[in-house]
């Protein structure tokens, strides 16, 4: 399996750990990355908000740099990069005029792009749906049993439309973490936005949003929140201290990438998985995991029905 790889700007600084560990687990799973040569920024949400055509042209340059015959699919590990690549390709395919104008702009740099040539994928989607949970299981050398991992998806894995998971109740990462053996509670806030760039505009607004998310995870006794986007990671991790001082709380929830915990289950040395790059320490989580009792073989006894209680409705199968 060979894919083009679009690391995104965060990979060079803030989310170096995500980029590095993604490459490690990709190798273990037999996914080959071909990094786009001389890729540029996707424009995040800022570029699109102010000037539409240059924003599309900016993203399209990356698509144009890909050799579509060799790698007809491009993986972005960052949700914002992923959605911008996907949006540009789809809107160019849908709107003829946009396609023409973007290509006129690209031609100024001796480039061209035919919409539909390169399909954009999120790295989580590729791991869960192309590689598959069974293949992941085969690579596992140890279970994550004993850890309560709260999956947090943020905005762009199910939204705005035709995405790889449900906009309100995504399951991909839940299933992945369960496959790794972790306890995965049903986190009701898993698609509520992390606030994005709001940290730069209104501390009050962003800390309120982040506190909501952290409180929800805390109530589930999270040993860590697991993410697949550098922006989500940055906000929840770097501002956790500010949330604590603003709200007199004491959250100590490490925010880790799914690629990092996969590395643990694949038997990679925790030292190489760069947990120390998190502002909130992962030490307690790692110690808990290392000292966890091996999963007991005994099947849990079925809980006896409370005589007074009314029956619960069955959950809808996804």
């Amino acid at each position: 399996m060979k894919y083009a790889w679009y690391p995104g700007c965060s990979a060079e600084g803030n989310s170096f750990a995500y980029d590095e560990t993604s490459r490690m687990i990709a190798e273990a799973l037999g996914i080959e990355f071909q990094e786009i040569d001389d890729w540029n920024c996707c424009g995040a949400t800022e570029y699109f908000s102010v000037n539409q055509l240059p924003a599309y042209a900016l993203v399209a340059r990356n698509l144009a740099l890909i050799n579509a015959e060799e790698t007809p699919q491009v993986i972005a590990p960052c949700s914002a990069c992923y959605i911008n690549l996907k949006k540009t390709d789809e809107k160019m395919a849908k709107y003829e005029q946009l396609n023409t104008e973007v290509n006129v702009a690209l031609a100024a740099g001796n480039l061209s792009y035919e919409p539909g040539a390169v399909k954009s994928r999120h790295f989580l989607d590729v791991v869960c749906n192309d590689v598959g949970y069974e293949a992941v299981k085969e690579k596992m050398t140890q279970s994550l049993a004993g850890l309560t991992l709260v999956p947090y998806y943020g905005c762009y894995m199910g939204r705005p439309e035709d995405n790889f998971d449900h906009p309100e109740r995504p399951q991909t990462m839940d299933t992945l973490l369960k496959t790794l053996g972790a306890d995965v509670p049903d986190y009701s806030l898993k698609t509520i936005c992390c606030g994005g760039h709001m940290t730069q505009l209104s501390a009050e607004a962003s800390l309120r949003i982040l506190r909501h998310l952290l409180e929800g995870a805390n109530q589930l006794n999270a040993d860590a929140m697991v993410v697949g986007c550098p922006m989500c990671q940055l906000n929840l991790d770097a501002y956790q201290k500010d949330v604590n001082s603003a709200y007199k709380t004491n959250y100590q929830i490490p925010i880790v990438y799914f690629s990092q915990v996969m590395g643990l289950a694949f038997g990679m040395d925790p030292e190489t998985l760069m947990f120390e790059r998190g502002i909130v320490s992962s030490k307690a989580m790692l110690e808990k995991w290392l000292t966890a009792e091996p999963a007991s073989k005994k099947r849990r006894r079925r809980e006896k029905r409370d005589k007074n209680a009314l029956p619960m409705p069955k959950q809808l199968e996804s």
Partner: peptide, 20 residues
């Protein structure tokens, strides 16, 4: 990190701004 072919990117963006 500055990208290698900044000239190309500028040309593309300038053109896009001109059309837009």
């Amino acid at each position: 990190k500055r990208i290698k072919n900044m000239g190309q990117l500028r040309a593309i963006l300038d053109k896009a701004k001109e059309i837009g």
